[in-house]
Design a protein around this nucleic acid. Structure first.
Lengths: 250, 250
DNA sequence: CGAAACCTTGATACCTTTCAATTGAGGTGG
DNA sequence: CCACCTCAATTGAAAGGTATCAAGGTTTCG
């Protein structure tokens, strides 16, 4: 059951030192996601309170931000990069439950422990706040609390959508959905309109879609042969027939 | 693709008249879940405010409470019975995203529309509140808002757990997990310790676990032949070797 | 009693997984 | 500079498991 790929997952589970993350204290004014993150609704004064409690961190590719089962003493907002959320079974099988990108919030759990392991897929910057401080903030700022609930319900809706994908869709449909949704999330950048630069490896895609890497790879190949996409590099997808892909994903 | 069972799903999508649900106005004092629902943390005065806005409804077996895509003008708390949440694909494939039981809350969505269709699996009683009134209540009662967030994170954790099941587990593991989790949720009642009365049909179980009814049925049969369970009736499971089942689900 | 819904069981086909080998990219050290 | 290693992705062949198709049996209810 353990393939070399899965071995690498286990190895990546070695706890990194906290100081491995480079830290810097910076104001919300320089934050690239202050319009979209959960703190977006705060007034200037309210944000000043936040400023005092938070710090910015760079997380290197592959590094763990928090472990499934860890006490949730910290909450994060992703500023740049892509974070992978995943859960492990005892024998090494892994389900990637989602990816976080710029503006996404991490640490919504009740009060106990993190539900998923969070790891940096590429170079990631996070805004970090101690949970205690954040909870005090929530008590003082009802709008923040309300915004968190709104965020939670969005994430939950996405989770339901993903359950539908995992339980009912074929590999072909899964991959089509995945590519379109990811493109919509990341595509707002400066990238060419029909190009999608995948931050994650095939293993991540496979574990996200409930498939094996071989099936993912084969499905990519078929789509390429059908002229739906081009794959100049494994991690660069060019949409050639978006309409056909949307039909598959429908 | 459309089996007779799936046909029945489509038929059940005919919108019922609102008045088909029997309505009665009753105080929270008689509510059977006032200790466990989201309103549990409210003080007596706060609950009095709730009383004015809410009403109790009986929903008959098979009736729809709300549709996926409907404007979310109402929120509910389940008082008795079991509610099925599901999402449909255009061709009739269905994913059951979860079941709600006594004390569960329905209507957490951001502000727009319901993410899933909610239907009564058996005889159900719900406590119903207009969304507007409920939101006003949340603004007045920070503890309620906070409680909603806590509830959201619990539901989200369960969703992540179910993604792991859907994406990685075998039919045998899926069914073992399902039986144990359901028993834990419902088992607090007066029922015999090792008996589990299934409120839902095979179709619901299949669509919840991402399997066909045939596979569910066969898996039940195998477990029965192995002496793990007994099935005096299709909807009554007796655990004969709980430890073995837990091993499968591990 | 008859019809419909539900569940089980059987036979078959197909699709995905598994196992295995190959290729290419990137990094390191001799 | 190139041999050598690892990691990632692809491709092939084979096996196995679940879906599909089909039939029969049971229960429920009008």
């Amino acid at each position: 059951m353990l393939t070399p790929y899965q071995d690498s997952r286990i190895q990546s589970s070695i706890r990194p030192l906290a100081r491995a993350k480079s830290r810097s204290a910076v104001s919300c004014d320089t934050c690239q996601v202050r319009e979209s993150a959960v703190c977006a609704t705060l007034s200037d004064e309210e944000r000043a309170v936040l400023d005092a409690a938070k710090s910015r961190h760079n997380v290197r590719r592959g590094q763990v931000i928090c472990y499934e089962g860890d006490e949730a003493n910290t909450v994060y907002t992703v500023e740049t990069g892509t974070v992978r959320l995943s859960k492990l079974l005892a024998d090494g099988r892994r389900q990637v439950t989602g990816f976080l990108t710029a503006g996404d919030f991490l640490g919504l759990m009740d009060d106990a422990v993190h539900a998923c392991t969070a790891e940096a897929v590429d170079e990631v910057t996070v805004c970090r706040i101690e949970r205690r401080a954040f909870e005090r903030l929530c008590q003082r700022l009802p709008r923040l609390e309300h915004r968190l609930r709104a965020h939670a319900s969005q994430v939950l809706a996405a989770a339901h959508e993903h359950m539908l994908l995992l339980g009912q869709r074929s590999p072909r449909e899964k991959l089509a959905c995945f590519l379109l949704r990811l493109h919509e999330r990341l595509g707002n950048g400066a990238a060419p309109k029909d190009a999608l630069s995948l931050p994650m490896k095939r293993t991540d895609i496979a574990d996200f879609l409930g498939l094996t890497i071989e099936t993912v790879s084969r499905t990519f190949t078929v789509m390429r042969q059908e002229g739906l996409i081009e794959l100049p590099e494994p991690q660069l997808v060019i949409f050639k027939d978006r309409e056909a892909i949307e039909d598959i994903a429908a």
